[in-house]
Every structure is written in C-alpha cells, then in structure tokens.
Design a protein around this nucleic acid. Sequence first.
DNA 1: CAAATCAGTAAACGACTGTTGACTGAAAGT
DNA 2: ACTTTCAGTCAACAGTCGTTTACTGATTTG
Lengths: 235, 235
Amino acid sequence: MSRTAGRRRRGHGAEDTETGSRDDRKRRTRRALLDAALDLLEGERSFSSLSLREITRVAGITPAGFYRHFSGMEELGQALIEDSFESLHQMMRDARKDGLPPTHIIRASVAIFLDHVQSHRAHFRFIAKERYSGSSAVRLAIRKEVRLWVGEVAVDLSRFELLKRFSSEDLQMLAGMMINAVIAATELLLDAEPGDAAAVTRIYETVEKQMRLLVLGASLWDSSLTGGNATPRPA
Amino acid sequence: MSRTAGRRRRGHGAEDTETGSRDDRKRRTRRALLDAALDLLEGERSFSSLSLREITRVAGITPAGFYRHFSGMEELGQALIEDSFESLHQMMRDARKDGLPPTHIIRASVAIFLDHVQSHRAHFRFIAKERYSGSSAVRLAIRKEVRLWVGEVAVDLSRFELLKRFSSEDLQMLAGMMINAVIAATELLLDAEPGDAAAVTRIYETVEKQMRLLVLGASLWDSSLTGGNATPRPA
DNA sequence: CAAATCAGTAAACGACTGTTGACTGAAAGT
DNA sequence: ACTTTCAGTCAACAGTCGTTTACTGATTTG
C-alpha cells in the first residue's frame, strides 16, 4: 500500500542503477550482493547464518535475481574469498615492486600488511570468521592462501645471511611463526575499535617485539639439532 | 500415521530415560541437548546455523521441552563454553597437583594440553569455531579464558632464572607467543584426521621446535631495549 | 494417600526461508 | 527495424523456524 515512490526500490547496494551498459549494471549488482554480505558480516552474524533473501534485501534486488549471479550461498562465499584475497595479492605485488627498505624489511612488511588490514576490515573480518567456522571449501581456500604466504616468506627469509644454515623445514617453521604472530595481531586489530589509536599502536609494537624475539631465537638456532625426542601420544 | 512403536521416540541422546530420580533425568536430558549440539558441530555446521528444533530432534525431545533447560540458543552456547572449559580447568588442576617433571616442563605441559585436546575434540572444535565467529558474549568468554591462561603461564615463566630480567610486560608477550603456538597446533590437530598418527606426531614435534626457538630468543632478550620505534598508522 | 511439582508432549501461530516458472522491458545483436 | 538476449520482477510453493499455550502423567512432597 502507498508504494508512492519510484518503481525501483533499492537498498544501500546499487545506487545509480540507471547508467552504464548491461554488463556494467550486472557487475554493479554483483558487487552490491558482495557488499551486502560484507555489511551484514560486520555485525555479530556469521556467514552461515546469513540468508539469501536477507542479502538480496540489503542489495536491493529480488530473491530470484540472486540466481543471475550465483548458484547459491556457497558460491557467493567463494566469490567473497576471491574478492578478499585479490586485493591482498594486488597490494603485495605493489609492495614488492616498490621495493622495501633494506634495513627494516620485516618491520616494514608487517606494518604494510597491518595497514592493509585496517583499510579492508570487512574482508578480513570475513576471513577471520570463516577460517575455522566456514564450509570446508572456504576453509581449504583460506588455508591454501596461508600456506602459500608462508612459502613466500620462507623464500624471502632464505636470503638473509643469518638464516643460510636453516634447513628448509626449519625456515618454513620460522616463517610460520612470524605469520602466526601477524595473524594474531590482525585478529586483535579487528577486535579493537577502529578509532582507538592507542590500541592500534600497542598492537603494532607488540608484533614488532615478537618479530625481534623470533629473529633473536633464529640467530642461535641450530638446524642439526632438529627433532630430538618429541612426546606425542596417538590419543 | 502408523506410529506403531513405543510412545517415547528418542534420538542418540538420552538412552535409558526410565531410570533415576527426576533430577537425574533432567540432568541427563540437559546433557543430551549439549551433546546433540556438539554432535552437530562435529560436521561442517557452525553454532549460529544450528536450529533449536534440530538440536531437540537429535536429543530426542520436543522443541518446547528445550525451554525447560535453556531460555534459548544463546544460553545453550554459554553452557557449552562452561562445559568445555570446566574439563580443561579440571585437567590443569590435576596436572599441577601431580607435579610436572622439573627438566622438560614446557615440553611436558604442551604435550599434556594437546593430549587433552585430542580426547576432547568436540569441545575444542566448538571453541575454535566460535572464537571469532560466535556471539560477542561467547567470544568474550573465550578471550577471557585465553587471557587468564596467558597470565598463569607468565607467572610460571617468571620462576625461570633465565627470565628474571624480563619486564612483566615482556613476560606476557613471551607467554602469549607460546600460547599462540599451542593454539595454532591445536587447530592443526583438530583439522587432522584423528587416526593419522604421523600427522599428530609432526604437529607435536613442530610445536616443540617452536618452543625451543622462543626459549632461545628469550635467552638473548633485553627488556630494556623495549619499544624502540613502532610504525603504526591510525588507518 | 492426596496434593503439588514439573519434565516433557502435542498442536497451533505467524514469520521467514530457498527455489521455481512465467513474465517484462531495456540493451545488444543482426 | 527486427529479433534475441537476459537482468531483474512477481507470485506462489512447500518447508522450517522459534515460541506460546494447554495438557499429561510420573515423581516428589507433606
């Protein structure tokens, strides 16, 4: 009743629906769907609790219209993952091309990454939430990205004179610990209020300290003392 | 139609419903509800995607019966958290009482914890899933537990002669890194096939290596070199 | 033994869900 | 100028959901 206003009622998603070629408009609607999902995930909700209808409502289209873009929620989840990591990869390529300062490479890299996190909160919130709670396809995709990242860092580390005597396995472990620390910092960053500069500073400082501790440990490391006697029990 | 069998149809939850006092039966049904939720969480599902009806179905009671035990799903979530951490605390108390070997305390502690994880997979899967994707109440509860744990470990570490010169802040950081490594190992453990002894052994060995690296780093640490110049940017 | 308690049942409610098929109308193709 | 394509609409579907209400019947209580 009283649907007085213009025919098309849209949500926050696609604003100027009227311009551009058909492909452009389609791309815009797709973006609106992705953004709608990210918007809803900014709150307490988890991806698996989002409904298709809810997302189309926020994006400003009809439920049935959803299927012109994705076969279902699972596929939208995949798209969100690709979306999130693509901007990260882009950033990392740029950073590599621009060249890092030779002296504080680690610190600079960490800072660049955390800056990126802060300017893409929604993406990383999604990743953090889905890393352990998402569908197995999404979880695997995230794990693959992390594994690749660890590999890259291990290669970078292998160029340090100090780390020449590291076995490649131990290099992976060191890289893994560094990335674990950065991921932990990321999660703290996402939990902190975005405007809380003091908290942000503390997080940056802490992770830098952690890196320093790891480098110190590495300087005394002897890869030939590997393994030793572990204490595992099957259950 | 054709509901031929006995009146009460129960799921996997409460088996011998017929015995015990009224309180006993109530407790058993409550357990059945918690177990039903944990069962469902063993799969791909996340807690927020579980429905109340679904849980009562698995537990073998009527939807309305749920409310005799919990006011809603949120309260059940809280109960699951308490349940999970209670057995952990119990185990830690026991371990402390029994006394750890003086020589390899860290290694032994880590192994004991990971053993506990393996024998309580469902609980820890729940915690891992909800740590970043759950309701804020649940997330806060988990974070509180982790923070407390870090504090305890920091106190334990302060007794080492090697760490006497650590500032309390740096001790917290070291303890935090150790626990981060253990949590990362926990997550690997939960993702591994329970029977995969080789994978389990690798995880134990890796985390022990990580501990050794941290201890090495600590041996060179100088708390007076704290802070330095961090590189944070508000956004 | 009668009365009170209360864990669990049964049925109904309105709301929301994913998915469908037939449609419309503007853009793209020819 | 015509036909084709196709993003998005609309209406309807069969389910599931959380919650409420009145109830039942065994156990506890006095």
